[in-house]
Design a protein around this nucleic acid. Structure first.
Lengths: 129, 129
DNA sequence: ATGTAACCTGACGTTAGCTTTAGATTGTGG
DNA sequence: CCACAATCTAAAGCTAACGTCAGGTTACAT
Protein backbone atom coordinates (compact mmCIF):
# COMPACT_ATOMS: atom_id res chain seq x y z
CA UNK A 1 0.00 0.00 0.00
CA UNK A 2 1.82 3.07 -1.06
CA UNK A 3 -0.75 5.02 1.02
CA UNK A 4 -0.12 8.62 0.14
CA UNK A 5 -0.55 11.36 2.70
CA UNK A 6 -1.42 15.02 2.39
CA UNK A 7 0.68 17.94 3.36
CA UNK A 8 -1.02 18.33 6.72
CA UNK A 9 -0.04 14.91 7.93
CA UNK A 10 3.40 15.16 6.41
CA UNK A 11 4.07 18.48 8.10
CA UNK A 12 2.90 17.15 11.41
CA UNK A 13 4.94 13.98 11.20
CA UNK A 14 8.05 15.78 10.04
CA UNK A 15 7.66 18.59 12.55
CA UNK A 16 7.76 21.39 10.03
CA UNK A 17 5.04 23.72 8.79
CA UNK A 18 3.31 23.12 5.49
CA UNK A 19 4.68 26.44 4.29
CA UNK A 20 8.15 25.15 4.94
CA UNK A 21 7.37 22.14 2.81
CA UNK A 22 6.15 24.41 0.00
CA UNK A 23 9.36 26.37 0.36
CA UNK A 24 11.51 23.26 0.21
CA UNK A 25 9.59 22.15 -2.84
CA UNK A 26 10.51 25.34 -4.66
CA UNK A 27 14.13 24.68 -3.79
CA UNK A 28 13.82 21.15 -5.16
CA UNK A 29 14.33 19.42 -1.82
CA UNK A 30 11.04 17.52 -1.68
CA UNK A 31 8.40 16.77 -4.25
CA UNK A 32 4.92 15.30 -3.89
CA UNK A 33 4.54 11.85 -5.38
CA UNK A 34 1.54 13.22 -7.23
CA UNK A 35 -0.80 16.16 -7.55
CA UNK A 36 -4.37 15.64 -8.57
CA UNK A 37 -6.47 18.02 -10.60
CA UNK A 38 -7.24 20.45 -7.81
CA UNK A 39 -3.58 20.87 -7.01
CA UNK A 40 -3.50 19.05 -3.70
CA UNK A 41 -0.16 17.48 -2.94
CA UNK A 42 0.12 13.79 -2.07
CA UNK A 43 3.32 12.45 -0.59
CA UNK A 44 4.81 9.03 -0.04
CA UNK A 45 7.11 7.84 2.71
CA UNK A 46 10.31 8.98 1.07
CA UNK A 47 9.12 12.57 1.42
CA UNK A 48 9.07 12.11 5.17
CA UNK A 49 12.52 10.57 5.12
CA UNK A 50 13.83 13.44 3.05
CA UNK A 51 12.43 15.96 5.50
CA UNK A 52 14.02 14.11 8.39
CA UNK A 53 17.35 14.00 6.60
CA UNK A 54 17.10 17.68 5.83
CA UNK A 55 16.50 18.44 9.49
CA UNK A 56 19.48 16.33 10.52
CA UNK A 57 21.78 18.01 8.01
CA UNK A 58 20.53 21.41 9.12
CA UNK A 59 21.46 20.61 12.68
CA UNK A 60 24.98 19.97 11.43
CA UNK A 61 25.08 23.48 10.05
CA UNK A 62 24.57 22.85 6.34
CA UNK A 63 22.46 25.42 4.56
CA UNK A 64 19.72 24.45 2.15
CA UNK A 65 21.95 24.81 -0.89
CA UNK A 66 24.49 22.44 0.57
CA UNK A 67 21.74 20.07 1.56
CA UNK A 68 20.38 20.14 -1.97
CA UNK A 69 23.83 19.11 -3.13
CA UNK A 70 24.21 16.06 -0.90
CA UNK A 71 20.60 14.95 -0.43
CA UNK A 72 20.33 13.06 -3.73
CA UNK A 73 23.09 10.73 -2.56
CA UNK A 74 20.77 9.39 0.09
CA UNK A 75 17.90 8.68 -2.27
CA UNK A 76 19.19 8.30 -5.79
CA UNK A 77 21.06 5.49 -7.42
CA UNK A 78 24.67 6.62 -7.44
CA UNK A 79 25.27 5.45 -10.97
CA UNK A 80 22.56 7.80 -12.22
CA UNK A 81 24.11 10.93 -10.77
CA UNK A 82 25.45 13.37 -13.30
CA UNK A 83 28.62 15.36 -12.79
CA UNK A 84 30.24 12.89 -10.44
CA UNK A 85 33.54 14.76 -10.25
CA UNK A 86 31.75 17.89 -9.11
CA UNK A 87 29.80 15.94 -6.55
CA UNK A 88 32.96 14.36 -5.19
CA UNK A 89 34.49 17.80 -4.79
CA UNK A 90 31.48 19.01 -2.86
CA UNK A 91 31.58 15.91 -0.69
CA UNK A 92 35.24 16.39 0.09
CA UNK A 93 34.65 19.95 1.14
CA UNK A 94 31.87 18.77 3.40
CA UNK A 95 34.11 16.05 4.77
CA UNK A 96 36.86 18.50 5.63
CA UNK A 97 34.32 20.73 7.36
CA UNK A 98 32.89 17.79 9.22
CA UNK A 99 36.31 16.79 10.48
CA UNK A 100 37.11 20.28 11.71
CA UNK A 101 33.74 20.46 13.33
CA UNK A 102 34.28 17.12 15.04
CA UNK A 103 37.45 18.37 16.65
CA UNK A 104 35.93 21.63 17.73
CA UNK A 105 32.86 19.91 18.99
CA UNK A 106 34.90 17.47 21.04
CA UNK A 107 36.85 20.33 22.55
CA UNK A 108 33.67 22.26 23.22
CA UNK A 109 32.13 19.27 24.94
CA UNK A 110 35.18 18.91 27.18
CA UNK A 111 34.96 22.59 28.07
CA UNK A 112 31.30 22.26 28.87
CA UNK A 113 31.87 19.28 31.11
CA UNK A 114 34.69 21.06 32.88
CA UNK A 115 32.64 24.18 33.39
CA UNK A 116 29.65 22.26 34.64
CA UNK A 117 31.82 20.44 37.15
CA UNK A 118 33.38 23.70 38.34
CA UNK A 119 30.05 25.44 38.68
CA UNK A 120 28.47 22.56 40.54
CA UNK A 121 31.39 22.45 42.91
CA UNK A 122 31.01 26.16 43.58
CA UNK A 123 27.29 25.73 44.16
CA UNK A 124 27.93 22.89 46.56
CA UNK A 125 30.48 24.98 48.44
CA UNK A 126 28.07 27.87 48.72
CA UNK A 127 25.42 25.57 50.15
CA UNK A 128 27.83 24.10 52.67
CA UNK A 129 29.27 27.41 53.71
CA UNK B 1 53.39 45.56 27.41
CA UNK B 2 49.65 45.53 27.19
CA UNK B 3 50.06 46.99 23.65
CA UNK B 4 46.56 47.85 22.59
CA UNK B 5 45.47 47.53 19.00
CA UNK B 6 42.85 49.35 16.98
CA UNK B 7 39.80 47.91 15.35
CA UNK B 8 41.50 47.59 11.96
CA UNK B 9 44.18 45.26 13.21
CA UNK B 10 41.77 43.37 15.38
CA UNK B 11 39.37 42.80 12.52
CA UNK B 12 42.17 41.64 10.27
CA UNK B 13 43.63 39.28 12.81
CA UNK B 14 40.25 37.87 13.78
CA UNK B 15 39.08 37.60 10.22
CA UNK B 16 35.90 39.59 10.71
CA UNK B 17 34.90 43.04 9.52
CA UNK B 18 34.99 46.07 11.76
CA UNK B 19 31.23 46.40 11.35
CA UNK B 20 30.88 42.90 12.74
CA UNK B 21 32.94 43.94 15.74
CA UNK B 22 30.73 46.98 16.24
CA UNK B 23 27.73 44.68 16.01
CA UNK B 24 29.16 42.24 18.55
CA UNK B 25 29.93 45.15 20.84
CA UNK B 26 26.29 46.20 20.83
CA UNK B 27 25.35 42.64 21.76
CA UNK B 28 27.85 42.69 24.60
CA UNK B 29 30.15 40.07 23.12
CA UNK B 30 33.33 42.15 22.93
CA UNK B 31 34.33 45.45 24.45
CA UNK B 32 37.31 47.67 23.81
CA UNK B 33 39.76 47.88 26.68
CA UNK B 34 39.51 51.63 26.35
CA UNK B 35 38.17 54.45 24.25
CA UNK B 36 39.98 57.73 24.16
CA UNK B 37 38.36 61.12 23.77
CA UNK B 38 37.81 60.92 20.04
CA UNK B 39 35.98 57.63 20.36
CA UNK B 40 38.56 55.32 18.81
CA UNK B 41 38.40 51.81 20.18
CA UNK B 42 41.52 50.17 21.61
CA UNK B 43 41.55 46.44 22.24
CA UNK B 44 43.75 44.07 24.18
CA UNK B 45 44.55 40.43 23.44
CA UNK B 46 41.49 39.04 25.15
CA UNK B 47 39.31 40.74 22.55
CA UNK B 48 41.00 38.67 19.87
CA UNK B 49 40.55 35.52 21.90
CA UNK B 50 36.89 36.32 22.39
CA UNK B 51 36.39 36.80 18.66
CA UNK B 52 38.10 33.51 17.94
CA UNK B 53 35.95 31.74 20.49
CA UNK B 54 32.85 33.34 19.03
CA UNK B 55 33.80 32.09 15.58
CA UNK B 56 34.40 28.58 16.89
CA UNK B 57 31.07 28.50 18.70
CA UNK B 58 29.32 29.83 15.62
CA UNK B 59 30.77 27.00 13.58
CA UNK B 60 29.16 24.63 16.07
CA UNK B 61 25.81 26.16 15.29
CA UNK B 62 25.28 28.37 18.32
CA UNK B 63 23.62 31.69 17.63
CA UNK B 64 24.89 34.92 19.10
CA UNK B 65 22.44 34.82 21.99
CA UNK B 66 23.62 31.39 22.99
CA UNK B 67 27.20 32.47 22.60
CA UNK B 68 26.57 35.43 24.85
CA UNK B 69 25.34 32.99 27.47
CA UNK B 70 28.40 30.74 27.51
CA UNK B 71 31.18 33.13 26.51
CA UNK B 72 31.68 34.64 29.98
CA UNK B 73 32.61 31.20 31.27
CA UNK B 74 35.73 31.27 29.17
CA UNK B 75 36.88 34.65 30.38
CA UNK B 76 35.35 35.36 33.75
CA UNK B 77 36.34 34.02 37.12
CA UNK B 78 33.81 31.29 37.82
CA UNK B 79 33.33 32.34 41.42
CA UNK B 80 32.20 35.75 40.29
CA UNK B 81 29.39 34.50 38.08
CA UNK B 82 25.91 35.25 39.31
CA UNK B 83 23.03 32.82 38.95
CA UNK B 84 25.18 29.71 38.85
CA UNK B 85 22.23 27.31 38.84
CA UNK B 86 20.83 28.99 35.76
CA UNK B 87 24.19 28.87 34.06
CA UNK B 88 24.56 25.19 34.83
CA UNK B 89 21.17 24.56 33.26
CA UNK B 90 22.20 26.38 30.11
CA UNK B 91 25.45 24.45 30.00
CA UNK B 92 23.69 21.14 30.36
CA UNK B 93 21.36 21.96 27.52
CA UNK B 94 24.38 22.84 25.41
CA UNK B 95 26.08 19.63 26.46
CA UNK B 96 23.10 17.52 25.44
CA UNK B 97 22.98 19.29 22.10
CA UNK B 98 26.71 18.80 21.63
CA UNK B 99 26.42 15.09 22.29
CA UNK B 100 23.58 14.68 19.83
CA UNK B 101 25.52 16.66 17.29
CA UNK B 102 28.60 14.51 17.84
CA UNK B 103 26.64 11.41 16.99
CA UNK B 104 24.99 12.91 13.96
CA UNK B 105 28.23 14.36 12.78
CA UNK B 106 30.02 11.05 13.12
CA UNK B 107 27.29 9.34 11.12
CA UNK B 108 27.38 12.08 8.50
CA UNK B 109 31.13 11.73 8.18
CA UNK B 110 30.78 8.00 7.64
CA UNK B 111 28.15 8.65 4.98
CA UNK B 112 30.40 11.14 3.26
CA UNK B 113 33.34 8.79 3.23
CA UNK B 114 31.19 6.00 1.87
CA UNK B 115 29.71 8.18 -0.82
CA UNK B 116 33.09 9.55 -1.84
CA UNK B 117 34.45 6.03 -2.17
CA UNK B 118 31.44 4.93 -4.22
CA UNK B 119 31.59 7.93 -6.50
CA UNK B 120 35.31 7.61 -7.07
CA UNK B 121 34.88 3.97 -7.89
CA UNK B 122 32.19 4.83 -10.43
CA UNK B 123 34.38 7.52 -11.94
CA UNK B 124 37.29 5.08 -12.21
CA UNK B 125 35.05 2.51 -13.88
CA UNK B 126 33.78 5.06 -16.36
CA UNK B 127 37.35 5.98 -17.25
CA UNK B 128 38.38 2.38 -17.70
CA UNK B 129 35.34 1.39 -19.66
C1' DA C 1 48.96 72.33 6.60
C1' DT C 2 47.30 69.04 3.79
C1' DG C 3 46.34 64.77 1.90
C1' DT C 4 44.99 60.41 2.98
C1' DA C 5 44.18 56.40 5.63
C1' DA C 6 41.81 54.86 9.64
C1' DC C 7 38.14 55.66 12.42
C1' DC C 8 33.29 57.16 13.90
C1' DT C 9 27.84 56.92 13.73
C1' DG C 10 23.25 56.23 11.90
C1' DA C 11 20.27 54.57 8.66
C1' DC C 12 19.14 51.72 5.24
C1' DG C 13 19.96 47.31 2.35
C1' DT C 14 20.64 42.24 1.97
C1' DT C 15 20.30 37.17 2.31
C1' DA C 16 18.48 32.94 4.19
C1' DG C 17 14.85 30.72 5.88
C1' DC C 18 10.97 30.84 6.98
C1' DT C 19 5.86 32.91 8.81
C1' DT C 20 1.78 35.63 8.18
C1' DT C 21 -1.90 37.42 5.67
C1' DA C 22 -5.58 37.25 2.48
C1' DG C 23 -8.56 35.46 -0.48
C1' DA C 24 -10.02 31.57 -3.25
C1' DT C 25 -10.88 26.52 -3.89
C1' DT C 26 -11.81 21.82 -2.52
C1' DG C 27 -13.28 17.81 0.15
C1' DT C 28 -16.29 15.81 3.59
C1' DG C 29 -19.10 14.60 7.98
C1' DG C 30 -23.66 15.22 9.61
C1' DC D 1 -26.35 20.09 0.76
C1' DC D 2 -23.86 22.80 3.48
C1' DA D 3 -20.79 24.24 7.09
C1' DC D 4 -16.22 23.92 7.81
C1' DA D 5 -11.71 22.08 7.80
C1' DA D 6 -7.90 21.41 4.70
C1' DT D 7 -5.66 22.95 0.90
C1' DC D 8 -4.04 26.24 -2.68
C1' DT D 9 -1.26 30.68 -4.41
C1' DA D 10 0.90 35.12 -4.23
C1' DA D 11 2.68 38.70 -1.78
C1' DA D 12 4.27 40.80 2.07
C1' DG D 13 6.49 40.55 6.62
C1' DC D 14 9.99 38.91 9.93
C1' DT D 15 14.56 37.78 12.41
C1' DA D 16 19.49 37.07 12.53
C1' DA D 17 23.65 38.55 11.21
C1' DC D 18 25.68 41.19 9.09
C1' DG D 19 27.10 44.73 4.71
C1' DT D 20 26.72 49.22 2.39
C1' DC D 21 26.31 54.02 2.11
C1' DA D 22 26.89 58.73 3.43
C1' DG D 23 28.78 62.14 5.81
C1' DG D 24 31.87 63.59 9.31
C1' DT D 25 36.20 63.34 12.56
C1' DT D 26 41.02 62.09 13.66
C1' DA D 27 45.90 60.90 13.19
C1' DC D 28 50.04 60.99 10.87
C1' DA D 29 53.52 61.48 7.12
C1' DT D 30 55.40 64.66 4.00
Amino acid sequence: MSSLIQIGELSERAGVSHRTIHYYERLGLVQPAEREGAGYRYYDETALKRLEKIAALKRLGLNLDEIAAVLPLYFADATGIKGKEKVVEILKVQLAKAETQLHELTAFKRDLEGNIARMEELIAQAQRG
